[in-house]
Amino acid sequence: MKVLIVSNDREYIKRAKEVYEDADVALSIESAEIILSKKKYDFIVSDLVKDSLGGCAVKELGKEKRKEKLQPLKQEVIAVYSFKGGVGKTILVKTLLESLDKDIKVLVVDLNFRDGGSDLSFMLDLPVLPHIGMWLKERTRQSFFENLIEYSSNVSVLQAPPKVSLVRDIRGSDVDAIVKFARSKFDIIIFDLSDEFNEIVVAALDNATKIIVLSKGTEGEFARMKEFPYEFLTVFVRPEKGFKKYVKLLNLKYKVVSSLSKEIDTVCDFIFS
């Protein structure tokens, strides 16, 4: 959604930015007209223009509610896991980190290794370097912080490498070290995990204060849930019919959504409540 704020009132601009964080700002009608001639917007919010400007509709700021950002009450290590691929783990990680208050320092650790680069790296449009494989060459605290990517003012990423061979020597103890180092600087650590159950995944799960399992509600997933040796919260994304009978049998704590991105507030309330 592309929004243009047209105002010369500092307080108005501040309130508008609380609602539309990524909006552009024009300080006069004249400058707004120039901007509109070069770029398209979905709408304008303004205290200088009432109906429309340059063919772009104007919305009243007072009719929009500020979206309250989430502020967890304690330091969290959140592991996002699934028992099969293609359920939306990376989408959840991205929408989750973008839903947190800007005062919350977040580290995303991508342990979903694959040749060609991870989904998270592509989704966040990260540069190829640095990555976790570079930290593994030294395994020091200094090297750890040097190899983080600053995604935004409050979010950093320790990304997966473009080739699995670059992390072939990673161990469970390395995951323990990541958590130890990160706890000194970050309020929330989020692990994006593969759907395997190997030493690296187990180490991340062992360190987690909360485990979020994404599922489509298939029989195969429920069979693996039954054997899963951890307490976890389940988010079902457009689950298969009849899934509730298995939910009842396994006594799961769960939430059902049709879209992770559109219903992220519901998911976040579920995670942090």
Score class of each variant (00 low, 15 high):
residue 104 I to F: 14
residue 76 E to K: 07
residue 141 R to P: 05
residue 98 E to L: 07
residue 87 V to Q: 03
residue 153 S to V: 10
residue 112 N to W: 04
residue 149 I to M: 09
residue 104 I to H: 07
residue 79 A to I: 00
residue 94 K to A: 09
residue 138 E to F: 14
residue 97 L to I: 13
residue 162 P to A: 10
residue 161 P to A: 09
residue 65 K to L: 13
residue 80 V to R: 04
residue 132 I to H: 04
residue 122 F to Y: 15
residue 122 F to R: 15
residue 118 S to F: 06
residue 111 L to Q: 02
residue 99 S to R: 00
residue 77 V to N: 02
residue 109 V to T: 09
residue 125 D to W: 02
residue 158 L to M: 09
residue 96 L to A: 07
residue 95 T to D: 15
residue 92 L to S: 07
residue 80 V to G: 01
residue 92 L to R: 00
residue 161 P to Q: 01
residue 108 V to Q: 08
residue 106 V to G: 05
residue 157 V to G: 01
residue 85 G to W: 03
residue 124 L to A: 06
residue 154 N to C: 09
residue 148 L to R: 05
residue 161 P to M: 10
residue 161 P to T: 10
residue 121 S to F: 06
residue 95 T to E: 15
residue 89 K to N: 13
residue 141 R to A: 04
residue 104 I to L: 13
residue 149 I to H: 13
residue 62 G to L: 12
residue 92 L to I: 12
residue 74 K to G: 13
residue 93 V to S: 00
residue 141 R to Y: 07
residue 156 S to T: 05
residue 61 L to N: 09
residue 91 I to R: 15
residue 89 K to G: 04
residue 90 T to R: 02
residue 160 A to W: 00
residue 83 F to V: 05
residue 134 M to N: 04
residue 72 P to R: 00
residue 144 F to I: 06
residue 139 R to G: 05
residue 154 N to I: 06
residue 89 K to I: 06
residue 129 L to I: 13
residue 86 G to N: 00
residue 146 E to P: 08
residue 87 V to F: 10
residue 163 K to N: 08
residue 142 Q to I: 11
residue 166 L to G: 00
residue 88 G to Y: 00
residue 139 R to I: 03
residue 128 V to H: 12
residue 158 L to D: 00
residue 111 L to S: 02
residue 70 L to C: 14
residue 143 S to G: 05
residue 160 A to P: 00
residue 140 T to H: 08
residue 123 M to V: 10
residue 115 D to T: 13
residue 75 Q to W: 05
residue 87 V to M: 00
residue 156 S to G: 07
residue 153 S to I: 14
residue 156 S to L: 06
residue 140 T to Y: 03
residue 145 F to D: 07
residue 96 L to S: 05
residue 143 S to R: 15
residue 87 V to W: 08
residue 61 L to I: 08
residue 150 E to A: 12
residue 132 I to L: 03
residue 131 H to F: 10
residue 169 D to N: 12
residue 153 S to M: 01
residue 67 K to C: 11
residue 92 L to E: 01
residue 152 S to V: 15
residue 152 S to Q: 06
residue 71 Q to G: 03
residue 73 L to H: 10
residue 124 L to R: 09
residue 158 L to E: 06
residue 138 E to M: 04
residue 67 K to R: 12
residue 85 G to T: 09
residue 70 L to K: 14
residue 120 L to I: 01
residue 143 S to Y: 00
residue 61 L to P: 01
residue 125 D to N: 14
residue 72 P to D: 10
residue 125 D to R: 14
residue 129 L to E: 12
residue 118 S to E: 12
residue 101 D to I: 07
residue 83 F to D: 05
residue 122 F to E: 04
residue 109 V to M: 14
residue 94 K to T: 07
residue 131 H to T: 14
residue 90 T to W: 04
residue 157 V to Y: 12
residue 80 V to W: 03
residue 141 R to I: 08
residue 162 P to D: 06
residue 166 L to V: 02
residue 78 I to Q: 12
residue 107 L to Y: 03
residue 89 K to Q: 01
residue 80 V to A: 09
residue 132 I to F: 06
residue 92 L to V: 01
residue 64 E to C: 08
residue 90 T to F: 05
residue 86 G to V: 09
residue 93 V to Q: 09
residue 71 Q to W: 09
residue 75 Q to M: 12
residue 153 S to L: 11
residue 131 H to G: 08
residue 104 I to M: 15
residue 63 K to M: 12
residue 99 S to A: 02
residue 126 L to F: 02
residue 76 E to H: 08
residue 129 L to G: 02
residue 130 P to D: 11
residue 119 D to L: 06
residue 125 D to C: 13
residue 112 N to P: 03
residue 131 H to K: 13
residue 117 G to T: 11
residue 76 E to R: 09
